[in-house]
Write a protein that binds this DNA or RNA. Structure first.
Length: 497
RNA sequence: GGUCCCAUCGUCUAGAGGCCUAGGACACCACCCUCUCAAGGUGGGAACACGGGUUCGAACCCCGUUGGGACUGCCA
């Protein structure tokens, strides 16, 4: 690796699930590292004890693994680096960059309100009181009174923030625990991060980080050797890139309450990681002109450039994701498809008893299923008639196209007679021809005539091609189900689903 | 309220002053194909927020307006 190779970091906070926006951020970081021979670092920002749950961290790791973006380095845990933050806090305190403040948030608001100030934000109450550290006092960062902080952003250009609009923010909790900006900056310094690529929601706090960075730099702060040499001076400010937000239909930031944002749920529904990553790549970026939207990871790596990332928010469109997933599924080698389906077919998740599943039977049916599903989670419902003792009847289908069809009894009777003679030549082609004859005998087109048969055998009006399904099901079970349906129909019985 | 960001079809986007009577994809509609459903094929409707500049010429540059969003926490 070149000594000046980029070092990017993906720095999620554990939240209990892996957000699709985080996945997009991870991807763009990963792309920059891959295309430049750089290093992609994972850092868990768990300074908040509330968010420091082991299984949540495992969730991040497994989601990244599923996406094919395992870190090159890390995970580092901020919760394990508190000593280092305290060194920074002491240095900042000794230099007078921090001051103690005993005000609660409510007190600040109350003071502002009584002073007739609608503007939220710290009023500077304790700034020059010379309060001592301790006694549960928070430590605030003394921001400049005037001047401008410039955030050099690879996507948006220089963004300027007037210091006059910046209040003295809390950098250390009353408990002594460091907060986001401080830990984040100290880590980026120690880990020699060269590119900070993150969501646009962090843009407004970036000037605080830059102020923190320069203070540490001014103080002669040196790196701790996490990466590279211990004792090296504060590195130059990294490049920044703030990615556009991912929004919902209401154009609001994706909400964990209202929107389907958990990557895990997409995985569980049967989206393929490659399709998911491909779609994510289309959110805020697009391949070169004239290139199709479906592309490989390698192509993305070679084409991607931070400078080409869009500025405006993108709607996470599940319909488009789903379409792309279908494309990826259809493009799979048949054996890969069969293999990929296993989690949905074997074990407790399947809608049939575990020992009822027959891999060879599924494999025979798989090709026609592969062409019809958009997510793997749809597979069981397409083949359950093969593994359940009796079909899972859709009440509506049964009512409309069997009970509600005057011709159904005759069709079923004719099909039973016809199929019975086909036992020796039980193939889709023979079944097709036989059913065509049945249809003719009742004066119908095949499309209309096959409905009662399909429902009797599979339980539903829609499904895989009927004759392939019958071939795989076999003559015994097919005929038994046809007789069963005909019998119940004659008895006026409506089966429960 | 303050600071900042953003603005091309319903959606994701192409477009970096003349190639634009604005292209593609998803979604939608119609037709074709067809054993259901998909897939596939063909066709269709659908956008440069508005107003000023700059320029021979603006979706593209500048300013303003409007609209949307983010942040404004001892969360990250």
């Amino acid at each position: 690796m070149a000594p000046d190779a980029p070092r990017v970091r993906f720095a999620p906070s554990p939240t209990g699930y892996f957000h699709v926006g985080s996945a997009r951020t991870a991807l763009f970081n990963w792309l920059v590292a891959r295309q430049s021979g750089g290093t992609y670092v994972l850092r868990i920002e768990d300074t908040d004890a509330e968010r420091n749950r082991e299984e949540w961290v495992d969730g991040i790791l497994s989601a990244l693994h599923w996406l094919g973006m395992d870190p090159d380095e890390g995970p580092y845990r901020q919760s394990l680096r508190t000593n280092r933050y305290h060194q920074a806090i002491d240095a900042l305190w000794d230099a007078g960059r921090l001051f103690a403040c005993g005000c609660t948030h409510d007190e600040v608001i109350a003071r502002n309100k009584s002073a007739g100030i609608l503007t939220p934000g710290y009023d500077g109450h304790c700034r020059d009181l010379g309060l001592a550290r301790g006694d549960g006092r928070a430590l605030r960062f003394r921001t400049p009174d005037d001047g401008t902080v410039v955030v050099p952003d690879a996507i948006r250009g220089d963004v300027e923030f007037p210091c006059s609009a910046m209040d003295d923010f809390v950098a250390v909790k009353g408990s002594g625990a460091p907060l986001f900006v401080l830990a984040n900056v100290v880590d980026d310094i120690d880990m020699a991060v060269t590119h900070v690529i993150r969501g646009e929601d962090l843009l407004p706090t970036t000037p605080r980080g830059i102020l923190m960075w320069s203070s540490l730099s001014d103080l002669g702060w040196t790196t701790d050797g996490t990466f590279g040499e211990a004792g090296a001076p504060t590195p130059a400010l990294p490049a920044f890139a703030h990615l556009p937000m991912l929004v919902n239909e209401a154009r609001k930031k994706l909400s964990k309450r209202k929107d389907p944002v958990a990557v895990e749920s997409y995985r569980d529904q049967g989206y393929l990681p490659e399709a998911f990553v491909n779609y994510l790549g289309l959110l805020g970026w697009s391949p070169p002109r004239d290139e199709p939207e479906i592309f490989t990871r390698d192509q993305m790596v070679s084409w991607f450039a931070l400078e080409d990332v869009n500025h405006s928010p993108a709607f996470f469109d599940v319909a488009k994701l789903t379409h792309m997933n279908g494309e990826y599924i259809r493009a799979m080698a048949p054996s890969d498809f069969v293999e990929a389906c296993r989690p949905w077919l074997e074990g407790d998740a399947a809608p049939w008893p575990a020992d009822a599943f027959d891999a060879a039977v599924f494999a025979a049916m798989a090709p026609v299923v592969q062409e019809r599903v958009t997510v793997l989670g749809e597979v069981p419902a397409m083949v359950d008639f093969l593994f359940c003792d009796t079909p899972v009847f859709d009440p509506d289908s049964w009512a409309k196209s069997v009970v509600g069809d005057d011709g159904a009894p005759a069709i079923l009777a004719a099909a039973i007679a016809s199929y019975e003679s086909l036992r020796a030549d039980w193939t889709a082609a023979a079944l097709h021809a036989a059913t065509l004859a049945v249809a003719e005998s009742v004066g119908r087109k095949l499309g209309k005539a096959q409905a009662p048969i399909r429902i009797a055998v599979t339980g539903r009006r829609v499904g895989p091609p009927l004759f392939e399904a019958l071939e795989v099901l076999g003559p015994d079970r097919t005929l038994a189900r046809l007789r069963d349906a005909a019998g119940r129909l004659a008895a006026g019985d409506v089966p429960s689903a």
